Simulated assay, not measured.
Amino acid sequence: MKPLVSIITINYNESEVTLDLLQSIRTLTYPNYEIIVVDNASPNDNPDKIKEKYPEITLIKSKENLGFAGGNNLGVKQAKGDYLLFINNDTIVPKDFIESLVQTLQDDETIGMVSPKIKFHWDPTLIQYAGYTPMSHWTIRNNSIGYHQKDNGDFDAEGETQSIHGAAMMVPKSIVEKVGMMTEIYFLYYEEHDWAEMIKRAGYKIYYQPKSYILHKESVSTGKFSPLKTYYISRNRILFARRNFKPFQLWISLLFQCFVSIPKNSFMFIVKRQNEHLKAFWKAIFWNLKNSATIG
């Protein structure tokens, strides 16, 4: 018997999008999995229709919007699987994408997390993720390897990478039991990078497995460029550094933020007359100042 895989996905006002994912999951060739859908207190959606169309799933209806980490953690608490597969609801999966991920984790118990190759749904010939570069101690940003490049075989080498991609990541349940679940202070963005750092500090590797892939519609919930996204990315970028950088690295990054990043972004939003983004950006800065002693 193959080990049980718990597939966990979050729905927020996107039942139709979630139904598309579940339709693709039904074609999976992997023989042993369960599906957990967490509805994050959708205000303008009826998640019950997901259960009606796919009665085999476990539908958890949260009473409040817990964000990415909180919603997934709610699913973890119900999961029975040996392996936990966290996957965005705005993805489509090919029928054989689970096998290689499970095999990777079974073959090397020092691997704590694995992500597949991620390609764009709107153009499956283009890559979104083929691993990550290290997080810069200046900008507190990393780069997705292969981003917007053709899937021509150049990114087909599996191996250790610096961070995981939250759109699709598989983690052994034993690792979660040792290291803990995702911290919920982020709400949106950077929480998977933070979790990867926790798992690396525990002595495990982060892995990229291109034998598996998914198609990602990207940012359906929050919008590709919304004030909400501006706020959480700006807030959490600094929060990530505060939680994960060593003191000297943190001072470097904070100096860069104060004298380069913050003035540059403010100027950009002013010039483009993006007042809502400017407000969201400064709200993110003030959150970190107000919560200087809080790192989750």
Rank of each mutant, 00 (worst) to 15 (best):
N143P: 01
S144K: 13
S144M: 07
Y147W: 10
K150W: 00
N152V: 08
G153F: 09
G153N: 08
D154S: 15
D154L: 11
F155E: 05
F155S: 04
E158L: 07
G159T: 01
G159N: 05
Q162M: 08
Q162P: 01
S163N: 12
S163E: 03
I164Q: 01
A167Q: 10
A167T: 09
A167N: 11
M170Q: 11
V171C: 12
V171P: 08
K173Q: 10
S174W: 10
I175V: 15
V176W: 01
K178G: 04
K178C: 05
K178W: 04
V179W: 06
T183I: 12
I185D: 10
I185A: 12
Y186T: 10
L188P: 00
Y189W: 13
Y189H: 12
Y190N: 14
D194R: 05
D194S: 13
W195Q: 08
W195T: 01
A196H: 06
E197M: 06
M198V: 00
M198N: 11
I199A: 00
R201D: 11
A202W: 10
G203R: 10
G203P: 13
Y208H: 05
P210D: 10
P210R: 07
S212E: 04
Y213S: 11
I214C: 06
L215C: 07
K217T: 10
E218C: 00
S219I: 01
K224P: 09
K224S: 12
P227M: 06
L228G: 02
T230V: 15
Y232K: 03
I233R: 14
I233A: 13
S234K: 04
R235N: 02
N236M: 09
N236Y: 06
N236G: 09
R237F: 02
I238V: 14
N244D: 05
F245C: 10
K246W: 08
P247C: 14
F248C: 03
L250M: 14
W251T: 13
I252Q: 02
L254V: 13
L255H: 01
Q257V: 09
Q257T: 05
Q257S: 11
C258H: 01
V260W: 09
S261E: 09
S261A: 08
I262W: 09
I262P: 11
K264M: 08
N265E: 10
N265I: 09
N265P: 00
